[in-house]
Amino acid sequence: MGTIIKNTAIITDNGYSAIANATRAGIECLEGAGVDPGKVGLLINAGIFRDDNIMEPSIASLIQKELKMGLDFDPEQPNQSTFSFDVVNGACGFLNAVNVADSFLKNGNVQYALILCGDAHPSKTNHPEFPYKAVGAAALLKFSADANKGFQRFSYRSNGHDQVSSISAYGDMVAFGDQGRKRATLVFQNQYLNQFRQLNIELINTFLAEHNHPNIDFLVGSDPEPGFCTSVCQESSLSNQTTRALELFNQFDGDVHTAAPIAGFHHLRKEIDSGTPQSLLFSSVGSGDASACALYYT
């Protein structure tokens, strides 16, 4: 039995507020699935940049309010409630969130889980130094009784204990003065893409070997530069198969960062909805450095 993606949504033309973009993606995703917001027991935001650098409350709770989901304790329906929080782990956040949601769904704790991703500059403007595309992404998850469908086998790996993170983003609350809500510092080490590629390939090779080299139709991976995901596919043991790598950077004209896995799945919807069984390898790599992957069967 596995957790399946019931619906997805991607918003690319809604401006530069991470909250507004994720909200619109959430609404579109739920409406498309015909699922009442009240039925979503778990809401996770895995976007990492925060409008105005808000530290509290969770960004998820602010979006939850806009989605009109579990707004208040209802004595008439006390068991219908929503629990929300933010997951923070760079590009790997979506797969971490799915890993968590998978447990809540498997244990029968919730009926639906909604995961939101996407990043925008804290200033909510089209900031020239912000390297990511401002998008909102949503994936609605539910549990399937079909044992052969959905997410299977999550795997994760960090770089060595003596290695630093290849990229970092932070708000310097002293140096920014009274502009702390509008600024972020992003640091990219030289060769960071090579570090990411190497770690990503290492995890994929280990993962495939551990699971007897399952057939993979699509690699839905991080694509922080044009051709990155394709090169991971070609340089890993996936090159022994006919796996097709998604080229998200070219498709979105930029890096959609935390939203990449949802964007990739969304892009494949036509092929997935055609009914022919497909196997996907979700794979992310980013700061930490860390890489995550999971199999998905349609």
Binding site: L43, D52, N53, I54, M55, E56, P57, S58, A60, S61, L62, Q64, K65, M69, G70, L71, D72, F73, S81, T82, F83, S84, F85, G171, M173, V174, A175, F176, G177, D178, G180, R181
Partner: peptide, 18 residues
């Protein structure tokens, strides 16, 4: 999470000082 009340408390950078 009773999100109707999510805007009752904000922790964030000050807009008056560092």
């Amino acid at each position: 999470t009773m999100a109707q009340f999510s805007d009752f408390c904000f922790g964030m950078p000050s807009d008056k000082n560092a």
